[in-house]
Every structure is written in structure tokens, then in C-alpha cells.
């Protein structure tokens, strides 16, 4: 595990901000595990074993007052779990328990340098997604539709591509610790659906505006330096992606559109310097492209358009972060090769 020196507690703070989503997923895990245990308990075992369980469940007050063998005989046992099905259910139960045992670790992936970000995220989600895989396995096994060839892997990995709409709404949030040189965000779009939350905690130099490529109307996208700025993630029920970047990168927040309204982009910081060096697998062109995309979106929102293109002053919608807007305007002017003095 890399030392905290490189992430300065940002991982822990990111996990804290995702508390609600983690709790929702955890609650579903607990509920599923509990219901499954009930199924296994009710539907299996000898009469003696059932009586023993009933005795345990009735507790100490029943001792001497209730004949648990008789009590147990009256219990509604439900559909007994078929002998052929029970092992599958037990395996699913073990899977759920192992996920519960992982605690917060379940929502954290520390990527080795040089790994493909998309694959890292996919693997992390497939790991937490085993909860869905386990539930599906139970469902299929009980209804006699389980097919080892088709479903055999689901207890080991259940990638987001297989998740249903309901599962996506319950998506496990994930915090990924990653090298800046591996930050290529394009592939993440595949996962951003339902209520999926992804936070990238970036170590070392990184492309300045990589996440701008992900901005679409319904998606929350945040680039920040301070983990506190990620608190907006707790406010959306929809999908969200955020990156915590070292000093110098662009900082912006794109809020998704609400009922019919449009989303809102706020740019809090644009880097002064243009990208000059390739960073690992991210070329100069790719880095600059991210910045250009952010700037063009910002212009589209009227954020920086006023000083750059409309000096005559149709600028009633002046943005709050005026210094950032100025920086942005200056940046656009530079890019457009226009004299700064206009």
C-alpha cells in the first residue's frame, strides 16, 4: 500500500464524502446477506438442527418455558432449498460475507503505475459487483435457471456491463488512487450511469483538464485540489466523477441538469501554463485538448465569453469567479492567437 505521503489523506477524505453511497450499498449487502441466511436456515437441515436454531433464536427467556422441539415443528419452513441448489446458495452467502468483511476497503482501489484506468475501475467495480452477482446466482439457482457455463464466474467477478438498471442505481462508489501519468478518462464514460460515483485520487503530475471530456448534460464532473470541494458529490443521486489533482490543474464543477433545466459549469481555476511535456501515456496534444474542451464548454456557458468576444458588454451574466474567468479569457485569447489588449 503506498504511503499516505503521496495522497495526504485524500483517499480517506474521499471515502468519507462518499459515505451515503457506501452506506446504501452496505445496507443492501446486509439485507441481502440476512435474507439469504434466513432462506438457508429455513429451508435446510434436519429437524434436530432446526430445533437447535429455533432454541437459539427464542433466547434465554424461553428456557424452561417453551418446548423448542415442538415450537420448531410448527415453523413455516418455506420451500426447502433443494440439495442441488444449496451449495450454490451457500457459496453466494460466503461471497456476501467476504464483501461485508472487507469494510471500506471494498470501495478502494490502488492502481499500480502504468495500468489502464478503465480496466482498473472495471475490475474494482466487478469486485464490489459480486454482491449483485451473488444475488443473481441465488435467484437463478432457486428458479432452476442457473447455468455454470454462463453464470459460473459471477461470484468472483460481476462487471458493470452486466449490471441491471436497479443495480446501477445502487452502484458501489469507488475511490481509485492513480498516477497522474495514467489519467486518461475517456474510457470511464462506460461506467457513469445509474448512481455510480467514481473519485480519482491522483498522485504526481497529471494532465490539467482530463475530466472535461466527460462533461455531458446529466453527469456531475468535478476537478479539485481540496477534497472538501467534492462534497457536491453527496448532493446528486445520479452518476458523478471527480478527480483530486495536484496544484496547477484546472479546477471546475459541472452540475448535472435538473428537471428540464440545463447543467451548470463553474470554472474555478485555469492553469497559466500550457502543457509542454508528455506525461506517461498522455501526450501534450491530449493534455491541451482537455483544456481546450473545457474552455470551449465554458464559452458556451457564457462564462468567459464576455471579456473575450463581447467587449461591448452584453455581460449581465458575469460569473462569480471573476479572476478565474479572467484567467480563462486570457487563456482563450492566447489559444486564439488574438492580441490580449483586444
Amino acid at each position: 500500500m503506498p504511503s499516505d505521503k503521496t495522497t495526504d489523506g485524500r483517499v480517506e477524505r474521499s471515502l468519507a464524502i462518499l459515505e451515503k453511497a457506501r452506506e446504501d450499498f452496505h445496507s443492501a449487502l446486509v439485507a441481502t446477506s440476512e435474507e439469504l441466511r434466513g432462506l438457508l436456515d429455513a429451508g435446510s437441515g434436519s429437524a434436530e438442527a432446526r430445533a437447535e436454531r429455533t432454541a437459539a433464536e427464542l433466547g434465554a427467556f424461553a428456557v424452561g418455558h417453551i418446548d423448542v422441539d415442538r415450537f420448531s415443528a410448527f415453523e413455516e419452513t418455506g420451500e426447502p432449498v433443494a440439495v442441488t441448489v444449496a451449495p450454490k446458495l451457500e457459496a453466494a452467502s460466503r461471497t456476501l460475507q467476504s464483501l461485508l468483511d472487507r469494510g471500506d476497503d471494498l470501495f478502494l482501489v490502488r492502481a499500480e503505475a502504468g495500468k489502464d484506468l478503465r480496466e482498473v475501475v472495471s475490475a474494482g467495480l466487478a469486485r464490489a459487483g459480486r454482491a449483485f452477482g451473488a444475488a443473481r446466482t441465488v435467484e437463478l439457482a432457486r428458479s432452476g435457471r442457473y447455468d455454470e457455463a454462463q453464470h459460473g464466474e459471477w461470484l468472483d467477478r460481476f462487471p458493470p456491463s452486466l449490471w441491471s438498471g436497479r443495480e446501477r442505481k445502487l452502484a458501489p462508489p469507488i475511490v481509485v488512487e492513480i498516477e497522474g501519468t495514467d489519467l486518461l478518462a475517456g474510457g470511464l464514460a462506460d461506467f457513469l450511469d445509474g448512481a455510480q460515483k467514481i473519485v480519482l485520487v491522483v498522485r504526481g503530475p497529471a494532465p490539467p483538464a482530463e475530466l472535461s471530456r466527460l462533461i455531458t448534460p446529466g453527469l456531475m464532473v468535478v476537478q479539485a485540489e481540496d477534497p472538501a470541494d467534492l462534497s457536491v458529490l453527496a448532493e446528486t443521486e445520479g452518476p458523478a466523477v471527480a478527480a483530486l489533482l495536484p496544484d496547477g490543474a484546472a479546477r471546475f464543477v459541472h452540475l448535472p441538469e435538473d428537471d428540464g433545466g440545463r447543467g451548470r459549469l463553474t470554472v474555478n481555476h485555469m492553469p497559466e501554463d500550457e502543457p509542454k511535456r508528455a506525461l506517461g501515456r498522455v501526450s501534450v496534444y491530449q493534455q491541451a485538448e482537455g483544456l481546450r474542451h473545457l474552455a470551449s464548454l465554458a464559452a458556451g456557458w457564457g462564462l468567459a465569453a464576455a471579456p473575450a468576444a463581447a467587449p461591448s458588454g452584453d455581460g449581465a451574466a458575469a460569473p462569480a469567479a471573476s479572476t478565474a474567468a479572467d484567467t480563462l479569457a486570457a487563456w482563450i485569447l492566447r489559444q486564439a492567437d488574438l492580441p490580449e489588449t483586444g
Binding site: F25, S27, A28, A31, T32, E35, L39, E139, R166, L170
Partner: peptide, 9 residues
């Protein structure tokens, strides 16, 4: 949907 088990198909 957090309060619900995932078992319900």
C-alpha cells in the same frame, strides 16, 4: 433502495 435485499428479482 438501500433498505432492500437484492434477492428480489
Amino acid at each position: 433502495q438501500s433498505c432492500c435485499s437484492l434477492l428480489t428479482p
